[in-house]
Design a protein around this nucleic acid. Sequence first.
DNA 1: TCAATAAATCGACAGGTGTCGCGTAAGCAT
DNA 2: ATGCTTACGCGACACCTGTCGATTTATTGA
Lengths: 199, 199
Amino acid sequence: MLEGAMAQVIQSDTAVEATDPRILRSRRMLMDALIKLLNEKEFEDISVQEIADAATLNRATFYLHYPDKNALLQAMTAARFRELIARRGLSFTDCDGALRAIALGVCDYLSETTGCPSQLTKMPLEGSIIPAVEGMFREGASKHEARPAVDSEMLGTAAAWAMFGAARRWLQTPGRVSAEEMAGQIEAMVKPILMSGAV
Amino acid sequence: MLEGAMAQVIQSDTAVEATDPRILRSRRMLMDALIKLLNEKEFEDISVQEIADAATLNRATFYLHYPDKNALLQAMTAARFRELIARRGLSFTDCDGALRAIALGVCDYLSETTGCPSQLTKMPLEGSIIPAVEGMFREGASKHEARPAVDSEMLGTAAAWAMFGAARRWLQTPGRVSAEEMAGQIEAMVKPILMSGAV
DNA sequence: TCAATAAATCGACAGGTGTCGCGTAAGCAT
DNA sequence: ATGCTTACGCGACACCTGTCGATTTATTGA
């Protein structure tokens, strides 16, 4: 119970928002180091020692911030995805536009981060993107003062997983269509889920 | 390219179906050993050495069958899930019944395997259950001689992810409803996805 | 039955992982 | 400026991982 809570605090990092400049600097350097290494080799082939070296930090310092390299990747992914979405404005005033924009964001982010080298979108990503998308749906649902037949949280979860799964498959398809077109298809598939909450 | 194909062969195991009694015996013992250990501790806290010891096999023998412990868990999960579904008949004659049955299967399987001890449904499971569910949707779609507006494969993927994500969330909910009721909710959420393929 | 084939065992290896205690130095508050 | 707090560096630890070559044991087909 307690351990779980602690791990959560460490992983989410934004719990106390961390103001100490040394902490901010270390985490920034670790993320930059990982980004640099990801351009050279696969994530699985990167050791914590390499990340620490590239960040000019001690390996022990790494573990002071993240329990393992997956946690670093996850934190990085979540931050970059949120930033990408935020940069695009994404007003929740009209729902249809927002849904399509989120879908496009997921597609763009996946193709951006897994660009040419790594062929398969790995699991750690799911732990960071899906919760972020769920959060957006939650925010969107709150504007609706919904009367959920099922449970708006559950709808958001199902929609987020469907969206991510579809985007993931799209990315792995050889002769894939454009991200914009895929976003349209995803919108068509996912919208009915969110609608099914209406009594 | 070649390495990937090899790994696939090793992981899927059912490629040549493996008739050698020594192989069957070893894999059975490894799976039984893992099941036994999972009742005592978390998957992450189990080492390959422990699995091999519990199976009264040499550690090197383990690597003769699976590239790592995740592969073993995945193979085990996929086999047990397929078996659970198969045991329930699950005729694809009427679509609505099948969809609900699959949803119930996922819920039951998750609650069965992650019973009391481990609190969170871990990622390796996704790699085994989701593809299995996708396969069922693929089979179901083939009976429909569909004229897909989007792409029936993509619809199946989105539906499988939505279903798994919802079931996963349900499992983690403290005061959760019955598996049967949840299966009904999942059916309601997912059906529109599969329908959205119609022109 | 016997030889060919292939699985299982054994010991050992070069790495990687996560954690510790202890000392140094950077940041912060009074 | 001064002392308290805390991040960081350092070295070392026990353990786990994935792989190898050499040997023994079981299975299968002729």
